[in-house]
Computed example of a mutant assay.
Amino acid sequence: MRTETAGGGTVPGDGVAAEPLIEVDGVEKVFSVRRRAGRLRRVRREVRAVDGLTFRVPRGEMVGYIGPNGAGKSTTVKMLTGILTPSGGRLRVAGIDPARERTRLARRIGVVFGQRTTLWWDLPLQDSYELVRRMYRVPDAVYRANLDRCVELLDLAPLLAVPVRQLSLGQRMRGDIAAALLHDPEVLYLDEPTIGLDVVSKAKVRQFLREVNAERGTTVLLTTHDLTDIEQLCRRVMVIDHGRLVYDGGLDGLRAAGEGERTLVVDLERELPPLEVPGARTVRVEGPRQWLAFPAGRSAAPLVTAVAERYPLVDLSLREPDIEEVIARLYAGAHGPPAR
C-alpha cells in the first residue's frame, strides 16, 4: 500500500520513505550552437536545454514527465540513460552515475524512445528478442517467462515471425516495450508508448504497464503527449518548461496550479433562473440542468451543501477541468522560479 506525499511521491503504507531510485540535483545541460551571421561569419551561442533541474523518484513509482516540444524532456532522459553528460549538477540512477558507468547501468534500465526502434529492422521480431537475450545475458528461464508474459499481454504472438520493417508503428511500439522488459530492468523510460495505437491496443498497453509496475515494482518515467496516459497511469506528474521544473505533484494539485475550474452539473426538479451560490458562477443553463463553475483548488462540499439547501435538487455530478487546458495555462505562466 502507498500513500501520496506532498511532492507527489509515494511512500510505503507504514510511513517509511521509499528508497529514491532516481536522484537529480541541480542538473544542467548546455549545448553550444553555431549560427550564421552574414555570409562568412558564424557566431556561437549557448542553448540551455535543462536548467537547474532537481527531483527524486522513489523505487516503484510511476511518474508522468510532460512538457511542450523543446522543453527538455528528451534531454533529461538521455542524461538519465548516460547518452548525454550533464554540464553541471549531479545524477544518480540506482546509485550509478549514468555518464561514467553507462554499460553497468544499461543492465538495470529499459528504454523505449518514441519512434526510434531498438529492434533489428530486417529480422523477425522473435530473432530480435533472442539477440536482446544474448546482449543482456538473460538466463533462459527468466527470458522465457518474461517473453511469454509480454507476448500474451501485448498480443504479440501473430507478430513474432514478422520482420520488424513490416510492422505498423503501433505493432512495433508494442514490440519495443516487450524488448525493453526482457532483462527485468529496475527502471523503465517510456517516450510516447501509445503512439500509433488504436483504442483497444492503448488499453492493453496501459494495463500491461500497470501490472509491470504493481507486480514487479518497476519504476516508470513516462513522457507522452497523450494526457490520457498520464491520467490513467500516474499518480504523480512533473511538468518541465524551458528546461525548468514548473510543477511536481498529483493531478489534483496540477489542476489547481493551472488555475483550472471544476464544474458542478446540477439537475433540478424544474427549470429555474441561473442559480446563485457563493463561490461559484453559473456558466450554462439547459432546461432543469445547470452548470456551475468554481476554482479547481476548492472543495466541492460547501457548494453541494448550499445547492441542496436552497434548490429542489434531483441529481448532481462533478466534472474535473480538462487536463490539456490546465497544462496549457501552466505553460503560459511558467516564467517565474521553478516549483519546489
Score class of each variant (00 low, 15 high):
310 R>Q: 08
129 Y>N: 04
320 E>C: 06
333 G>L: 08
143 Y>S: 05
327 I>H: 03
33 V>C: 02
93 V>P: 04
210 R>P: 11
291 W>N: 00
237 V>H: 08
261 E>I: 00
289 R>G: 07
235 R>L: 08
125 L>N: 03
5 T>Q: 14
321 P>F: 02
8 G>F: 00
201 S>C: 12
304 V>S: 09
166 Q>H: 15
217 G>Y: 04
180 A>T: 02
154 L>I: 09
298 R>I: 03
205 V>S: 10
216 R>Y: 14
118 T>H: 07
10 T>W: 14
338 P>Y: 10
301 A>T: 08
121 W>Q: 06
268 L>C: 04
187 V>S: 07
255 R>E: 12
121 W>N: 08
30 V>R: 14
93 V>W: 03
156 L>V: 02
248 D>K: 00
113 F>K: 00
46 E>K: 11
51 D>R: 11
51 D>F: 13
150 C>V: 13
47 V>I: 15
332 A>L: 12
29 K>S: 12
3 T>P: 01
328 A>V: 11
136 Y>H: 13
337 P>C: 03
41 R>H: 07
84 L>A: 07
195 I>H: 06
7 G>P: 06
251 L>H: 05
56 R>Y: 00
84 L>R: 05
64 G>Y: 07
199 V>D: 03
61 E>G: 12
74 S>I: 04
209 L>C: 12
72 G>Y: 06
162 V>C: 14
149 R>D: 15
170 G>E: 13
329 R>A: 13
12 P>V: 12
115 Q>Y: 05
314 V>Y: 01
184 D>G: 07
230 I>S: 12
122 D>L: 08
165 R>H: 12
104 R>E: 13
216 R>F: 11
122 D>S: 15
135 M>V: 14
94 A>C: 06
39 R>Y: 04
37 A>G: 00
239 V>C: 11
16 V>N: 01
36 R>M: 08
130 E>G: 14
161 A>D: 15
1 M>P: 01
171 Q>L: 05
190 L>W: 06
331 Y>Q: 04
58 P>K: 11
192 E>R: 02
61 E>V: 03
202 K>P: 12
11 V>M: 05
96 I>W: 03
228 T>G: 15
327 I>Q: 00
128 S>M: 07
337 P>A: 11
103 T>M: 08
62 M>P: 03
287 G>E: 12
208 F>H: 14
308 A>F: 09
331 Y>E: 08
252 D>T: 06
173 M>I: 11
281 R>G: 10
181 L>H: 01
266 V>Y: 00
314 V>R: 15
235 R>C: 09
32 S>D: 13
222 L>G: 03
181 L>I: 09
79 M>E: 02
77 V>N: 07
311 Y>V: 10
5 T>H: 02
35 R>L: 04
163 P>L: 11
277 V>Y: 07
60 G>F: 01
234 C>R: 00
286 E>P: 06
244 R>C: 04
288 P>A: 09
80 L>R: 05
338 P>F: 03
60 G>M: 03
152 E>L: 11
1 M>V: 07
225 H>Q: 15
226 D>L: 05
76 T>H: 10
251 L>V: 10
323 I>G: 05
258 G>E: 09
182 L>M: 12
79 M>S: 10
21 L>G: 08
121 W>M: 12
139 P>V: 10
144 R>Q: 13
108 R>C: 04
283 V>F: 14
48 R>A: 09
110 G>P: 11
60 G>V: 03
